[in-house]
Write a protein that binds this DNA or RNA. Structure first.
Lengths: 106, 106
DNA sequence: ATGCTATATAAACATATGGTTATATACTAA
DNA sequence: TTAGTATATAACCATATGTTTATATAGCAT
């Protein structure tokens, strides 16, 4: 692959918050407000991280009325599967979101 | 794996120069002066990049008299093989080095 | 020892990155 | 239309990163 594209990919993954987002999206697609709730960060911050991931083609978005759902993409990277598998399991966080009713908004 | 460690790995790979170094080391171990010659960058710059790669455990070093040879490590990362395979082929650069006599010094 | 080569480290600086606050946009509901 | 919610973008600022120049360290050769 092109070094340019690879560098963009790794740059996008070179941040704990974005790795957390990818780890969460491995379980299921999520909208911005859910990520804000789970990661306890401000909405603009989450949005900016998502933009970087999207630019690197690591996630894709889908609009559903007022919500925008993000999910894993990365199909341009031959190694994406192995890299995602190395991420920690986030089922607990996802569960917490559902229990706390954070899932209601979407 | 720990997010901390993964982030360090991707940070180390999030730079074109360092990806170039990894791509070159895939072919064979190289010393600093050879990398300086191939990449046409200053020695301190190369040394600092190597330090980051070493800290992330992506390369290891071996001293041989006054030269320090760097080679691929990355065994702590389950995905390392697939990621290295995505790097562009550098045989041409390695050939050039040998032809130009740059290989003589080491 | 002395000088030479290879490499590492430090200091300084410009640029990139990530967070915050404020504002704009897009959609929904009334 | 107006108000409310979800998201994106912009401006600002503090910190991180990469490059350069200068200097220190380590090993070799004489």
């Amino acid at each position: 692959m092109e070094l340019e594209q690879l560098a963009e990919c790794y740059k996008a993954m070179a941040d704990k918050t974005r790795l957390n987002i990818l780890a969460l999206l491995r379980h299921e697609e999520l909208c911005v407000c859910e990520l804000v709730e789970i990661l306890q960060m401000t909405q603009p911050s989450i949005s900016q991280h998502l933009r970087k991931l999207k630019q690197a083609k690591l996630v894709k978005e889908r609009r559903n009325s007022q919500w925008i759902f993000y999910s894993i993409d990365g199909e341009i990277y031959p190694f994406i599967k192995e890299n995602l598998e190395a991420l920690p399991d986030m089922s607990e966080k996802i569960e917490q979101l559902k229990v706390s009713g954070g899932k209601v908004c979407c």
